[in-house]
Nucleic acid binder design. Structure first.
Length: 216
DNA sequence: CACCAGGCAAGTA
DNA sequence: TACTTGCATGGT
């Protein structure tokens, strides 16, 4: 089992190559993207980020100073705009209250502690918290999503319906704690999922990891 | 037309 | 604990 996940990574990387995921200009942009992308395609998130940039408000202080309805209007292209405006606000409240609005200070916090704090923010669940830790803070925390579970289940590496933390632990106990690796691996799993592992039509025959030896 | 996209909170049982 | 639903839009 320890080796299976490494083998899958190699196959995915050979097949798809590097994904250049989360090309945000700043860590703050990545965090905003992590909240806006919830249940939303990345293309629409980019439109929302672009509108924030053109309004020149894509920084913690500027965003914090916006009225809620103005913020909602700016993030409208990403969908769920009223909800997401609130969620951004909740995060900013936390950031300013606990870390004085200073992201670098926040990232200096121990990742386990920061993770707990992020999960207390309304609108930030496990996947978003881990995305922030990995993609914005560059901490070696593995991000699990629906594709990750589905792909592993299809290859009989896990059972259907296992919890987020079980899957996360599996990755983190099998791989060295390397943020660069976790970053690429998660992105590759999403890529594979979109290509071959949709719910409606499983195409595991053509899947590049289809022939991985499955052990228990 | 149905279904999905890089989820989460709140309500219910 | 484990489901269910609202949240809103744009692409395929």
């Amino acid at each position: 089992m320890r080796k299976v996940l490494k083998e899958i990574y190699k196959k995915l990387y050979r097949h798809f190559g590097p994904q250049h995921w989360w090309p945000g200009d700043t860590p703050f942009e990545v965090i905003v993207g992590a909240i806006l992308t919830q249940n939303t395609s990345w293309a629409n998130v980019e439109k929302a980020i672009a509108s924030l940039k053109s309004a020149r408000v894509l920084s913690p202080g500027k965003l914090y100073a916006l009225k809620s309805n103005r913020l909602a209007a700016l993030v409208r292209p990403s969908g769920f705009y009223n909800l997401k405006a609130k969620r951004l606000r909740h995060f900013l409240n936390f950031l300013f209250k606990v870390y004085g609005g200073d992201l670098r200070r926040m990232f200096r916090q121990k990742s386990a502690k920061l993770r707990e704090e992020l999960l207390l923010v309304k609108g930030i669940g496990p996947e978003t918290a881990d995305s922030i830790l990995l993609y914005a803070a560059n901490k070696p925390i593995f991000v699990v999503d629906a594709y990750t579970k589905r792909i592993l289940a299809r290859h009989a590496i896990i059972k259907e319906g296992v919890g987020y933390y079980e899957v996360q632990r599996l990755f983190m106990e099998s791989l060295k704690p390397n943020a660069r690796l976790y970053n690429e691996y998660h992105a590759l799993l999403v890529k594979l999922g979109k290509t071959f592992c949709k719910r409606a039509k499983p195409l595991c025959g053509e899947c590049p990891i289809g022939k991985v030896k499955r052990q228990k």
